[in-house]
């Protein structure tokens, strides 16, 4: 099973925010979408879930195809979009937004939210809806289940987000800027979790502006600039990138590393 997005075009008025974007997410692989701020990468990711609010009717056309087994082919259309995405959201694709704490219901305990996802996934009906195993899977203490989002640190929130996605049983996971604002040790921990998720067969779309992540865990790399894909290649040997924009990004990353 894999996700294919083809020819996505998002307009705000007459301005194209995203044009002719195509991408693929494959199970057990991490696709990294890199780009500077405002390059349209988050928008692209959200359009996979039909969550492009506020700029509609902006999507002009796109084909979303999820292959293998249940094949869903959804030409984007303004009509009936919400319902079209129902089978996609959750069971197929989960999304961890950029600020994971904001992605949690502020007034519900973490455990309850995991339990909700478990119920939604349908895989754990009956008695087995305990959130603890899922917390443990992302290296959190059981007691975290009783905490509220505002009591979580950034790293914990990120782990909870991953735990939610796992609990939801999604085949694919879109992770938006997972390491922003985290110190290096926490960052490593999160990356570890993502790897483990990948290893369990989940296909990941990792959105970041940090090319270093690609080196650490990327399988496939996409570089976006001003709404277009400028680089689409395997994640090995980044120095061989074609486009000038990608090269510039790569150089910047190297300079950053050197300073550190």
């Amino acid at each position: 099973m894999s996700v294919h997005l083809r020819s996505l075009r998002i307009l705000a008025g007459k301005r194209a925010l995203v044009s002719q974007v195509s991408l693929h997410i494959l199970p057990g692989q991490i696709t990294v979408l890199v780009g500077a701020s405002g390059s349209g990468k988050t928008l692209t990711a959200r359009s996979l879930l039909g969550l492009v609010h506020g700029i509609e009717p902006g999507i002009v056309a796109a084909d979303l195809e999820i292959q293998d087994g249940e094949v869903i082919h959804r030409p984007y259309a303004a009509v009936d979009r919400e319902r079209a995405f129902v089978p996609v959201r959750g069971p197929l694709i989960a999304w961890l937004p950029q600020n994971p704490r904001a992605a949690l219901d502020p007034l519900q305990a973490v455990g309850a939210q995991i339990r909700d996802c478990l119920k939604l996934s349908g895989q754990n009906t009956g008695l087995d809806v305990a959130p603890e195993p899922w917390l443990e899977r992302v290296s959190l203490a059981k007691s975290v289940g009783r905490l509220y989002p505002h009591q979580l640190s950034g790293g914990m929130a990120q782990r909870v987000g991953i735990a939610l996605a796992l609990a939801r049983g999604s085949r694919f996971l879109i992770v938006d800027e997972p390491t922003t604002g985290l110190d290096p040790s926490l960052r490593a921990g999160i990356l570890e979790e993502l790897k483990r998720a990948r290893d369990s067969g989940v296909g990941l779309l990792l959105i970041t502006h940090d090319l270093r992540l690609v080196r650490q865990l990327g399988d496939h790399l996409l570089v976006m600039d001003r709404g277009c894909i400028v680089e689409d290649r395997p994640a090995q040997d980044l120095s061989a990138m074609q486009s000038a924009q990608a090269q510039a990004l790569w150089q910047a990353t190297l300079r950053l590393e050197a300073r550190q």
């Binding site: 506020g54 069971p91 937004p97």
Partner: peptide, 22 residues
């Protein structure tokens, strides 16, 4: 348009459930 609403939707929570429950 808070994050958790989007996240909930992304997790496949039905609008009704997000609205009434959350």
């Amino acid at each position: 348009h808070r994050g958790f609403v989007l996240a909930g939707q992304a997790h496949g929570l039905r609008s009704g459930r997000i609205l009434w429950l959350h």
